[in-house]
Amino acid sequence: MPSAVIWLLDANTLSETDCDALLDYLSEAELLRYRRFLRPLRQREFLLGRIVLRFAVAQLMGIAFEAIEIIERQGRAPQLQLPPTCPLTPHFSLSHSRGWVACAASAGTPLGIDIEALDAGRDVDALARSAFSAVESDWLSGLPAVQKTEAFYALWSCKEALYKLISHQGEETVLPQLVAGGLRLQSGPGWHARSWSQQGFAISLCSREQLAAVERIRLYGATLQAWRQQAGA
């Protein structure tokens, strides 16, 4: 069975100087898109998402960070361009929420990842009635109050991750129901899901093939050297 790695970075911990130093790694097309974002936080998420993606692929494939090119595609996920010597192009998925960036990579199976900040102040029952099916909404409303926020965001992020997985495969993006018999489903035809709660966020990873293992690595600092040391720890 294939495996995957999830790389996590809190962009809120990086200074403006840290981020400016990383701009040199972006292509002209990426810089143009970066400058179109009006909100500084969204700019930062985009920049670090592209940098973490390069780093994740470099670590997975054992190639130089600088040898990886990213091609922007309007309305679609970016495309990787690797050196001709690479035997395959890995699968990846990106997500961000409130300054956190998550990147999943696998050499063996398509992926979809989503990260969502847990917000205990929101009326999750009302949100579920508008965003989920009746069966899914009823499942959430039947849970104890102390479990509802985390359960809502776990299901929400799983739906988002599954949507990315299905749409990246070029298939019709009709999501299956993720609750049956009063339980959350963790797999279905052509998909498998894993979910975690970490640092006040819900994280979901969906894959086409069942994964033998998923490693989660949080990155600290803003230099490739620091990240490489953490990856090798």
Rank of each mutant, 00 (worst) to 15 (best):
I166V: 15
A222S: 15
R35A: 10
A231P: 08
A56V: 08
C158R: 14
Q225D: 12
Q186E: 12
A64E: 15
A226T: 15
T109G: 04
L47E: 02
W7V: 00
I6E: 11
S93P: 04
V135S: 14
V5H: 12
A102F: 03
C19M: 11
L88Y: 11
W156P: 10
L175Q: 04
L53S: 02
S93Y: 04
Q229P: 01
A231C: 11
Q186A: 12
Y34W: 08
L31R: 15
C103I: 06
A202Y: 00
F46V: 04
I6Q: 03
A58E: 01
F201Y: 15
R35F: 10
G170C: 07
E209W: 01
Q229D: 12
A4T: 05
E136P: 14
I203H: 04
R42E: 10
Q79H: 12
A212C: 07
I203Q: 04
S195L: 09
F201N: 14
R33I: 10
I70W: 02
H91C: 12
S93W: 14
G190C: 09
L14R: 06
L82R: 00
E171G: 05
G188C: 05
E209P: 01
A21P: 00
T17M: 08
D138F: 09
L38P: 01
V5R: 11
T149R: 03
A161P: 01
A126K: 10
A107S: 15
K164G: 06
A202S: 15
I68V: 14
K148P: 12
L143T: 08
L88N: 07
Q79N: 07
Q43F: 07
V5P: 00
F132V: 12
L140R: 08
E45G: 05
S106I: 02
E28R: 12
R218F: 08
A126F: 06
L53T: 11
L178W: 02
E171W: 05
Y163P: 05
C103P: 01
D18E: 09
E66M: 02
W156Q: 03
R44Q: 12
Q198N: 10
R228Q: 13
G49N: 08
H168L: 09
S15G: 03
M61Y: 06
A128V: 10
G181S: 03
L41C: 03
D24R: 13
Q79D: 14
D114S: 10
L82I: 00
Y153T: 09
D119Q: 07
Q210A: 14
A161C: 09
E66F: 00
S141T: 14
R208H: 07
A222N: 07
K148N: 07
S95P: 00
A4L: 04
P189H: 09
